[in-house]
Every structure is written in C-alpha cells, then in structure tokens.
C-alpha cells in the first residue's frame, strides 16, 4: 500500500531544521547517487578500482623519497612510509570528498532543476564515494602494517572508526557549505583546489606538528578540522597521547564547520533550482 502522505508547499520559512523523516524516505537515493558516481568514476579505465589503491600508494612513495629520505622529517618513531600513508589515507578521503562535494551541486544542476528530492543527498553521496576509496586504501594499509611488522594497540578497533567519523564530519561541514556557495557564486570553483592545497600543508599529514618551533604556528595548525582525525588515527600505532588542548581545538572547529555548512545549505537549498 502506498503510504498516505499529506504535505504542504509553502514559501520557505527561515527557521528550518533537518527533515530526518524525509531523508529517511529518500534513503535509497543516497545509495544510487553513490553507486552511480563510483561506477562512472572507473568506467572505461583499464585498471578500474585499482586506481583507488594506486593513487595513495604512489603518493606515499613520492613523499617517502623526498620528505622521509631527502629531508629526514621525524615521524613519531614510525617507519616514514607508514606515517605518511596513515595520514594520506584520511587526507585523501577529506580532500577528494571536499572537492567532489563542492562541485556536486553544480555538476548535478540538470537534475536539480527537474526533480525534487532532499538536496543534501547530493553532497553527502559524493562524500560516500570518497569513503569507498578510503576502504580500498585501507586494505593496502593493513598490508603495510603487516609488512613493517608494526604493533597496533587494541584500542584501534574503536579509535579508527572514531577517526573516520571525524573525517566525515570535517568533510561534511566544509563540503556542504562550499557546494551551496559554489552554486550561487561560481568563483568557488577556483577557490577550492587552492583551499585544499593550503589545508594539506596546514595539517600534519606528512610532518608532525611538534616539528614546528613556534607555538603560534602550532595553534593555527590544530584549528584544521582534520588535525584531530589524523592524530587519532595514528594513536594506536604511536601510542603517543595527542595534546588534549590541540584535540579540543580541532574538534571544535570540525563541529562548528558542520553546523555552519548544513545551516547555510538548508538556508539556500530552496533556491538552488533558480540559481543553477
């Protein structure tokens, strides 16, 4: 039996919260958008899904060569390749998710103009695509752990998922915000790659924060919402407790961005079809 639905279409009111019920009703679309993007991404490629593994692997090799060997950057007593890969794994998820999400609304403009569904599905799905790549990369990561005979604390079982959730939160916040801004001001198309590049160097992906001599710089760095995620992700390996203040700063910025992002998105979503 079709569900009995009665709904109203009215001019948008300002105070509007997330429609969980509606999102649940459209839950299959999350799957279909993600599924489509993953399929399309690897269509007509010879290596297919292997690219999801090869990309971080190549990056790891390059960083190991330049930063680990040539510059001798400290790596919290981990083999440098492991140090870089653990950072890159989450970072790639963040940067790919952010880039995909930011462009997702513009890329799907044709659909937005013709069919209604909760718009939030689009940026969320593009982040789920990045999550898929993360899971592929994670397979390689476990391989590397075995290869380097790296001891891993048992706490990893809940710390790793927690780090992953923090990454998703960080990506969601900035991603939904930028995707909404991008549909109104196409300038953001050019800002995003630059932003991602800057954040890369502001996040301890390839070097530890402790390397920095000036505390002031450290404070700026830990405001990156990805700082907490990456530090947590490495914790079961290094057993070095991250600085509690740094962690709080990073977590706060992640949550603040999430609220700003979703709030701005919901504020503007009604008019996407008019701007797209």
């Amino acid at each position: 039996m079709p569900e009995y639905i009665e709904y109203k279409i009215e001019p948008p009111s300002t105070a509007k919260i997330l429609h969980w019920k509606e999102l649940w009703l459209y839950r299959e679309l999350f799957y279909f958008f993600t599924w489509r993007d993953i399929k399309v991404k690897y269509k007509q490629t010879l290596l297919g899904f292997l690219w999801a593994i090869l990309q971080p692997l190549f990056m790891m090799i390059i960083f190991t060569f330049f930063f680990g060997r040539a510059l001798n950057i400290p790596s919290q007593n981990l083999p440098y390749p492991l140090y870089v890969f653990s950072g890159l794994l989450l970072w790639n998820m963040f940067s790919a998710g952010l880039t995909n999400a930011s462009n997702s609304m513009v890329n799907n403009a044709a659909i937005i103009k013709k069919i209604y569904f909760p718009r939030l599905i689009i940026p969320v799905s593009s982040i789920l695509v990045a999550l898929f790549d993360f899971l592929m990369g994670f397979g390689i990561y476990t391989g590397l752990l075995v290869y380097y005979a790296q001891p891993v604390a048992w706490s990893a079982a809940f710390i790793w998922p927690l780090a992953l959730i923090l990454t998703v939160v960080a990506t969601m916040g900035l991603g939904s915000w930028l995707s909404a801004l991008n549909i109104k001001y196409r300038d953001f198309r050019y800002v995003i790659p630059f932003l991602v590049q800057v954040l890369f160097f502001l996040t301890p992906v390839i070097y530890p924060v402790s390397m920095l001599k000036y505390p002031f710089l450290q404070y700026i760095l830990v405001c990156s919402p990805m700082y907490a995620a990456i530090e947590l992700f490495r914790y079961p390996l290094t057993d070095a407790m991250p600085d509690i203040y740094f962690m709080t700063a990073s977590l706060t910025s992640g949550v603040v961005f999430l609220f700003i992002g979703i709030f701005y998105f919901k504020q503007t979503e009604n008019f996407f079809a008019d701007y797209a």
């Binding site: 009665e6 109203k8 009215e10 001019p11 069919i115 209604y116 079809a273 008019d274």
Partner: peptide, 21 residues
C-alpha cells in the same frame, strides 16, 4: 512549484498523495 523544485513566494499548496513529476 507543484513538484517542489522551486518554492512559491506566496500562497500554499496542500497535496494528499505521492507525487512524481
């Protein structure tokens, strides 16, 4: 407006069924 793609500026619509456009 009927398919909820763009909101109306004034007025309202009450719909009592599953809509596809």
């Amino acid at each position: 407006i009927l398919s909820k793609i763009t909101p109306p500026t004034t007025g309202k619509i009450i719909s009592r069924g599953r809509t596809a456009s």
